[in-house]
Design a protein around this nucleic acid. Structure first.
Lengths: 226, 226
DNA sequence: TTAATCATTAAGAAATTGTTAAGCCCTGTT
DNA sequence: AACAGGGCTTAACAATTTCTTAATGATTAA
């Protein structure tokens, strides 16, 4: 979700603002364009995962734009959603015909919009993503599907933060992660937690996995040893 | 194709006869109903792979029926196609909204009808084995046909939501399903229910199956243990 | 040595889930 | 039409787990 780019295309600034605000609040990266032509330009640059297209627009309408976008290698596989006024019946069909993945009727309710978008993205993101079990060496296996870690035969289920911390460190054994890295990746950009918090979680992992698995480099960070 | 069951629903006997004849000729097993309500009854019994629904019908129109059918576990995954007169534009939209997979305009040309149906059925490679009974381990068997679960010898019949919840969790034992996952898969994309609803259903399942079968991972989700 | 950095521990905050009972809606019945 | 019953949801509060903090001790690099 952090890396999901959405391109909004509508000729009414009000609509752009409204959607933009709501989508950003959900953590998406949002770009905008006000007509079909500039939408295509922008799309080529930012490579959006999802494009929300108003059907009625000057210059080039949404349906035309959609067909174009489906032909460009950069945007061929993006999700495309149409925005349509509830009365423009035919356009909805035409939209699906033009290669859109969904359509959403105005007037828009933020809840509905967000949940449809989540749904679409969830469906699509799956393909590559995560393998179930990762063997990180040192007799330790991490299973992201069952949220479970097996160390030396024992199968233990870690609390969320510990699991994330271990996953992070073990994602690149030998690499040193600075405290700052760790904070950003696990707690997020603007969360503020005290200095000792990480240590405490490290401690618990050491208790559960053995003292030698995670090594401290003073003043630099932590690393997972194989 | 031999085992493909099609349910035809239309209030005009002529149309039923006409379609029935053409579909049977192609080797499909055909059932009929003349209104929405009886369509649902029949569908529960025959578990059709494809349902062809006229939009305009007495008692319960096709759109209503479609929504119902999408909510029943027995027919949730069936293909649903609407029949609409060419003039009723809006019904097409509403149909897709209600969860239909395609729509076909009257008047019908048998060739066209048959080839669309072939195409639809070809695309859908039966989701899961559709076998009646699935043994999910832990001494628990789920029978999707009779809507029944047997745990440790006991045979118990679960209410819909509980059954769906168990089916979902047990569909991949060991995998953690987040509350969001569960909500979307069982309640649908934009249905909003309170936070405690899932817990309550989980609770009832635990009462019936035993406390150890479903495990909570706080902040992450639930998983079914084998 | 000394200042900075990290480890350890226990306590309590915060977040999440469990539990219960009550209400609503639908269905079938009297 | 009134009623009974089951299923689903909600709301309030309890219980639990996880996370964070704070205080103190240990370690290390300069």
């Amino acid at each position: 979700m952090e890396n999901t780019r959405i391109l909004l295309v509508d000729d009414e600034p009000d609509v752009l603002d409204f959607l933009s605000y709501n989508l950003k609040k959900e953590g998406y990266e949002v770009f905008t364009a006000s007509d079909g032509k500039s939408a295509i330009q922008t799309a080529k640059k930012v490579l959006p995962n999802l494009i929300i297209l108003d059907v009625m627009m000057p210059e080039m309408d949404g349906i035309e734009a959609c067909k174009e976008l489906r032909n460009l290698p950069e945007t061929k596989n993006a999700l495309i959603v149409f925005l349509t006024a509830r009365t423009e019946d035919y356009s909805q069909i035409a939209g699906l015909d033009a290669g859109a993945d969904d359509y959403i009727s105005k007037p828009l309710k933020p809840r509905v919009l967000i949940s449809r978008i989540h749904a679409l993205l969830r469906r699509r993101i799956q393909p590559d993503g995560h393998l179930g079990v990762v063997d990180v060496g040192g007799g330790i296996k991490i299973n992201k599907e069952s949220y479970t870690v097996s160390a030396a035969g024992e199968e233990l289920s870690l609390p969320k933060k510990e699991f994330e911390l271990l996953s992070l460190l073990a994602s690149k054994p030998g690499k040193v992660f600075s405290r700052e890295d760790i904070l950003h990746k696990i707690w997020g950009e603007d969360v503020v937690v005290g200095d000792r918090t990480i240590d405490v979680h490290i401690r618990k992992l050491r208790q559960k996995l053995g003292e030698e698995k995670i090594k401290t480099l003073k003043g630099i960070g932590y690393k997972f040893e194989f």
